[in-house]
């Protein structure tokens, strides 16, 4: 589609204390954007709000909420829509990496991970899809991961949560694109953020600022799926092409 998006003026961010989300919001703030930020810890939200306001945001509203509480989603989303007047872009950024070795032993861990990364996203996405469909425009973006492209033993539950998210977003896009709404699936590779701070940082690690620029470009260009940095697209294509009889024996 040749059509291009303008820079969003009113933005809702779920998991707004995420390092990737912060880097992205910093790109928008100098344009006078209005934000509605949601994450669990109020003190952190206040620091993020101060940063965005200093960088030029017109208004920043914060709400402390554990997004695992799906029953609270509709009320929170209604407040966001009311406060912002109109939502140009909703960004779903929250997520947890979890610990696969623990999930291997304890299903409740896997269930919590799936709840935070997938179930809560489906809950938010359901409300937002109806909202954007009625509005007939806007962007619904969500941060998935390259981990959702193929199942690896080292992060199979995390990967499953992101694969489920990809599938759900594909379906929403199928429904909403024809209503003028962009649905963007963001698939970053390794990014240097608190989530990965415990890992040795190899050359494959990208900075959140880099990922943020790719995200913003994908929004403006009205893309469907964006791999960031770009080379992951080809890397994951190669990984997906490995036949399963071979992949199942590999240690990746």
């Amino acid at each position: 589609m040749a059509h291009k998006n303008a820079i969003p003026q009113t933005v809702l961010v779920l998991g707004a204390t995420s390092a990737i989300a912060q880097a992205w919001m910093r790109l928008l703030a100098p344009h006078g954007t209005q934000f509605f930020l949601v994450a669990r810890q109020e003190e952190r939200l206040r620091a993020v709000a101060a940063d965005l306001q200093t960088r030029g945001a017109t208004a920043v509203h914060i709400e402390a909420l554990n997004l695992d509480r799906t029953d609270e989603h509709p009320a929170m989303l209604e407040r966001a829509a009311r406060v912002l007047g109109r939502i140009d872009c909703a960004m779903i950024a929250h997520g947890v990496l979890g610990d696969q070795s623990q999930a291997d032993r304890d299903f409740s861990h896997a269930a919590m991970l799936l709840h935070t990364n997938l179930i809560s996203v489906v809950s938010l996405g359901t409300w937002l899809a109806n909202y954007f469909e009625a509005q007939g425009q806007g962007t619904l973006a969500a941060i998935s991961s390259v981990a959702g492209d193929r199942g690896r033993w080292k992060n199979c539950v995390y990967g499953a949560s992101k694969a489920g998210m990809n599938m759900f977003l594909d379906g929403l896009r199928n429904r909403l694109d024809r209503r003028g709404v962009q649905v963007l699936t963001i698939r970053p590779g390794f990014v240097a953020t608190p989530m990965t701070a415990h890992m040795p940082q190899g050359p494959l690690f990208a900075q959140p600022e880099r990922v943020a620029r790719d995200i913003q470009r994908a929004i403006e260009k009205r893309r469907d799926i964006v791999y960031t940095p770009w080379f992951w697209r080809w890397m994951m294509l190669a990984v997906r092409l490995i036949p399963e009889w071979k992949f199942k024996r590999m240690d990746v």
Binding site: V96, D99, P194, A197, H198
Partner: peptide, 21 residues
């Protein structure tokens, strides 16, 4: 090693420990 899915702030630091040059 992680013991909780969502570690409280006080623990998230200790997971970030890396010994190196």
């Amino acid at each position: 090693m992680r013991t909780k899915l969502i570690p409280p702030a006080s623990e998230s630091g200790s997971e970030s420990k890396r010994e190196s040059d």
